[in-house]
Design a protein around this nucleic acid. Structure first.
Lengths: 197, 197
DNA sequence: CTTTTATAGTTAGCCTCCTAACCATCCTCC
DNA sequence: GGAGGATGGTTAGGAGGCTAACTATAAAAG
C-alpha cells in the first residue's frame, strides 16, 4: 500500500495549467500515469485488506502461491507417485520470482516457518542451499481462502466487459514492456524460460 | 514497491487451467487484475528509483507536492503581495490528501523537517494544530527535479497514442470507482442519524 | 462551571521492504 | 590441490507503512 501522491487526482485543466509552467509536463501522459497508480493502489489495498482478514499479508500470500502452483502441476503430472509433499524451491528462486531481494525473502520465510506454513530443508547435494516446502496446513489454508480471493478479483473487474478487459491488458502490456526496457536499459533480449503456471 | 505476486505473469492458458479447479476464477478478470498490478508496480518502482537518485522517497516527494501546489496557485493569484512563503497546511489535511494515517504523516514531516524541506509552526488560534510550511530549499529542490520527473512520466507513457491514453484512463476510472465503492460499502445513507441499536 | 466528548498530533511497537556486510560453500583455474 | 572468485543464505540497520494508546486542547452537555 504505497503512499500515493494524491487521493483525489488533479483535474485535466490543472494539468494543462501546469504544462504552461513546465514544458516537460505532457498532460495526457501525466493523467494516464496518475490514474494507473491511483487505481492500482486502490485495488491493491482492497486485496491486502481482504487477505489481512485471514491473517496473512500480501507478501506472504505471494510466497505461498509461488510454492503451491508447482505442487499442483506435479499432482496433475504424476498423480500416482505417492509423493504428497509440495514442490520445493530455493529462497533465491522465490526471491527472483517474487521480485524482492533475498534478504526480504529470508524474512518472509522466517515468519511463514514460524506460523507453520512452510519448512526449510537443507539441500542434500549443495550445502549452501535450502529447499522451502509448503506444509499441509498451508495447502489447506490456500484451498480455503482462494475462492474468496478469486471472487474479489472478479468483483473488482466486474464493470469491464470482456472486450474492455482485453483492451486494458493490451494497453497495460505496452506500458509494462516499455517500462521494463527503461529500467533495464538497452540490454539484448536474454530471455529465460517463460512463466510457469 | 510492494511485493507483487509474480514477476512473470501467468499465461492465459494457465488461468483457464486454474479455472477448472476453481470455478470462482474468472480468467479474464484475473488476467486484467494481474496486469494492472504488475504494470503499476513496474512503473512505480521506476519513478521511485528516479526520485531516490535525488535523495528523496516517493512518500516525502508526495508531501512536498501537496504543500507546493497551493503555493503555486497563490503565486498566480496574488503575485505582487510579496508573501514568498508557501501555503501552509496541517498534518491532518496532508494525511487525508495523501491517503495515509496521521501517524505516518508525523513520521514523514519529521524527516522532511530534519532535512530542512519543511518547518512546523503552531497555529495561533487553535493550540492543538500545527501548520506545515515549505522552505525555500524545498521549492528550489522541486523546481530542480520536476522537469526530469515529468519527462520520465512522458517517457513511460510514450508507447500509447493520445486516444489510447484516453481509453486507458476511461477503463481505469471504471475500475477505480468500482473499487472505491467496494472499500466503502453501502455509502448511500450518509444522511439522518444512523440506526442506533 | 464542571464533566464529558471530540479532535490534533505524537509516541510506541510491529511488519515489510531495502542495502550492505557477513559467513559458508562451491567452482574455476593455475 | 589450493587461492580467489562466484553463489546461496543470513544478519544488521534503516525507512516507511500500519494500529493502538497517549497527551493536550477545544467544544459540547449538563
Amino acid at each position: 500500500m504505497p503512499l500515493l501522491l494524491l487521493k483525489d487526482l488533479p483535474r485535466y485543466e490543472c494539468l494543462l495549467e501546469g504544462a504552461k509552467e513546465f514544458p516537460d509536463l505532457d498532460p495526457s501522459a501525466c493523467e494516464a500515469f496518475l490514474h494507473l497508480l491511483r487505481t492500482s493502489d486502490e485495488v491493491f489495498s482492497l486485496v491486502e485488506n481482504d487477505l489481512a482478514v485471514h491473517g496473512i499479508s500480501h507478501g506472504r500470500f505471494g510466497v505461498l502461491m509461488l510454492l503451491w502452483n508447482p505442487a499442483q502441476r506435479r499432482i496433475d503430472a504424476a498423480h500416482a507417485a505417492g509423493d504428497c509433499s509440495s514442490g520445493p524451491r530455493t529462497p533465491a528462486e522465490l526471491a527472483d520470482a517474487a521480485g524482492v531481494t533475498r534478504a526480504t525473502m529470508t524474512g518472509l520465510i522466517d515468519t511463514l516457518e514460524r506460523d507453520g506454513f512452510v519448512r526449510r530443508e537443507p539441500d542434500p547435494t549443495d550445502r549452501r542451499m535450502m529447499s522451502v516446502l509448503l506444509t499441509e496446513k498451508a495447502e489447506r489454508f490456500l484451498v480455503g481462502i482462494l475462492p474468496a480471493h478469486f471472487k474479489l478479483m472478479t468483483r473488482i473487474m466486474a464493470p469491464l466487459s470482456e472486450s474492455e478487459r482485453k483492451t486494458l491488458v493490451r494497453l497495460l502490456t505496452k506500458v509494462l514492456e516499455n517500462a521494463s526496457e527503461i529500467s533495464v536499459p538497452a540490454t539484448e533480449p536474454a530471455r529465460g524460460p517463460p512463466a510457469i503456471c
